[in-house]
Design a protein around this nucleic acid. Structure first.
Lengths: 391, 391
DNA sequence: TAACAATACTTTCATTCTGTTTGAAACTAT
DNA sequence: ATAGTTTCAAACAGAATGAAAGTATTGTTA
């Protein structure tokens, strides 16, 4: 028999309520204690004590007084934007994006480098190097990093801080949290990159304060991040939301996608779209120059028939994947993200139109707010939460 | 701004741990306190106090002593099967199934009647009548009902106890919990029927103690029940798991399924399968007698080509829906259920075969244990949990 | 301008959890 | 018979919540 639930103690009780309060402050930007009471249902004592702790640990600050509502004026609380930052890293398949992010979600510095995937060690060294740079940068600016958050494409055991398997980085069984802990002596969060994107939108973006949302990322690869009740849903083997492997029709059943990136990814990812286009073009002209997904969309905009057909198929398959996601999870909001949605002008409205009348649920369907920065901002959010647990 | 989370108090802290303990007892049938400690990670005093309360309220009983492991023999604890029962009702589209279920999941009495859907009042009256009968039956047997659980096909707000919309019963905005509370003065649980089936398998069936599972029900209609971390996942509008509306391919995009039962349901439900078969048969012979899904499977078993084709399609579409479910939710276990799976001999292995190599996750895929009784047993489970919260 | 009402904050206290410690009881092995 | 192990029971401290009473600040009104 497996263990079903975690045991609950007064300690984690306090942590949970602290998070509730912190997220309320984050979602509202600036808020008074009485308002927190009304929104959370907690008692004044609890709110007072919790905010006191958060102030003491420097995560939030008092910021002036609210106008009176008939009596004594209440003090406004907001996230500390003066001297605390999070170090957020997005390990992409091709690029590493690092940044210093203030607690309220402002990116203060960015560093971007090409990944060197010669070996797992080279990319790890790059990661360490970037973190070191960001720490120094924060020192120069008189900022104190409260923690490090790293997003990795692949399967991550965020509890154990292990990268289980990341094919694009060539990482396998890398105990990244331990490594970073030891080296930098800061709280560390390790998480799947798309999961972090979802958290970023939840904390600072278009999903701010929406407790049930799904972010669908169509980029070089395809993935999704699922937030249920304000927490990441990771599944039983940390593989939830791997929608690249969705099967969007009968004809995909004969394919063996287990060890590739999946049927949907084959049709709708950036690489997939380019691949389909190039195959078609080469059929007509064996010496055709290879094009990218972006080129396909550009041609479609110019009204070229072959490209419009491909885009129409892409719209179809994305619609199928969104519909299936909505039907299964019934989220409040769907967020589209990733490089493919840089061509949202050709995608969003057609998708919405195809969904119209197709399924009975009608969640908000929106575009990502944070774009390529979503992951490092998600890192900021998650580190903030993690630090708030033990201030 | 919406409220994100519930506030946590010591009271619900106790409730949560009590549930953890109760489910551990339920999942193991018969277990000692030290064993509970090992499985849950809770302290001895917590387990002791909690079990004391559960014993006092009569939900569990001590049942003899375990063999010694070197010292004092420990007492075995199990669910009270002697004098406590749950009244479980499954309001089907055509039949009502009611039963007295002992806390350990034995069905002591069953009542089955055809639903009278003349009006919403007639079926409600039938429900009241059956509950009344079961209460009297329990009196005769010297049993005490601890609560009433009702499963309804449709959208139910289980927190408010409201039937939001049940087309097959013609119910809309029925505050069933309040009605039953007032009439019978017992704790009441109102829940979607497929959700209850999932809970039944989780508590007493093939999913016993598996905290992350999905039950897929292919019957007259199609639905699914999602259990995450041992709790039902209901979605933001109580519509999670409505997989009848899954879109299993490009050709379904032109259909307007919003106000019907959905694209997948059109292909794979009992009614859907029969409909497809009858349409085909009538094309060949306009006077063909209408057949049922069961007939189709029977013909396929006899090797009739036309039926085998239909069944193969059904296998395809079920495979697609399962694959998409797995990919999105990454559960530990998938449970197939419903009338269509009475022909599991033609379905299960082919489905598994088609899944082989298709996706990278490999959850257990099994058949329902409890069959048509799953829902009322789920009712028993949920009522048990609900009562344990406030013994 | 002073009294009053309303609201926000502070402090104190009782309650309800958890987990630890200590000791008694029950059992096995030597 | 003795020693050691394990379970069970009770007492206690720690942490968190929420309620209540008191203080501070602000706006209103006579």
């Amino acid at each position: 028999m497996r263990q079903n639930h975690q045991p609950y103690s007064t300690e984690i009780l306090g942590q949970l309520n602290t998070i509730v309060i912190l997220e309320t402050i984050q979602a509202n930007g600036s808020i008074t204690r009485p308002e927190i009471i009304r929104k959370t249902g907690l008692s004044f004592s609890t709110v007072l004590r919790s905010t006191e702790k958060l102030i003491q640990s420097g995560l939030i600050v008092e910021s002036g007084l609210e106008a009176s509502t008939g009596g004594r004026r209440s003090t406004l609380l907001k996230l500390n934007d003066d001297d605390k930052v999070v170090i957020g890293i997005d390990m992409g398949g091709t690029k590493i994006l690092g940044g210093l992010i203030s607690l309220s979600g402002n990116i203060l510095t960015k560093i971007k480098v090409e990944v060197d995937i010669t070996s797992s060690q080279t990319s790890l060294d790059q990661l360490f190097e970037i973190i070191q740079q960001l720490i120094e940068e924060s020192k120069q600016r008189n900022l104190r990093p409260i923690g490090i958050g790293v997003g990795v494409p692949g399967i991550t055991d965020s509890k154990g801080g292990e990268i289980v398997y990341s094919p694009s980085l060539g990482w396998e069984k890398i105990y990244l949290k331990d490594m970073l802990d030891e080296r930098f002596h800061l709280p560390v969060v390790v998480e799947n990159d798309v999961n972090l994107m979802a958290l970023g939108e939840y904390g600072y973006g278009v999903g701010r304060g929406v407790p049930n949302l799904v972010l669908l990322a169509f980029g070089t690869g395809i993935g999704s991040g699922i937030i249920i009740d304000g927490r990441l849903y990771r599944g039983s083997t940390f593989s939830a939301g791997e929608i690249g492997h969705m099967v969007p029709g009968q004809k995909f059943l004969s394919g063996k996608y287990e060890h590739t990136h999946g049927a949907l990814e084959f049709m709708c990812s950036g690489t997939g779209i380019a691949g389909i286009a190039n195959t078609q073009l080469r059929e007509q002209n064996p010496d055709a120059v290879a094009i990218t997904a972006k080129d396909v969309f550009e041609s479609a905009r110019k009204g070229e028939e072959w490209a419009a057909r491909i885009v129409s198929d892409v719209v179809d398959y994305i619609t199928i994947s969104v519909a299936n996601t909505i039907v299964l999870l019934d989220p409040e909001e769907i967020i589209f993200s990733g490089g493919v949605f840089e061509s949202a002008d050709l995608l969003l409205e057609p998708i919405k139109k195809r969904l119209d009348g197709l399924i009975p649920m009608h969640p908000e369907i929106v575009l990502s707010d944070l774009g390529p920065q979503a992951a490092i901002m998600g890192a900021a959010h998650q580190v903030l939460i993690e630090v708030a647990k033990n201030p």
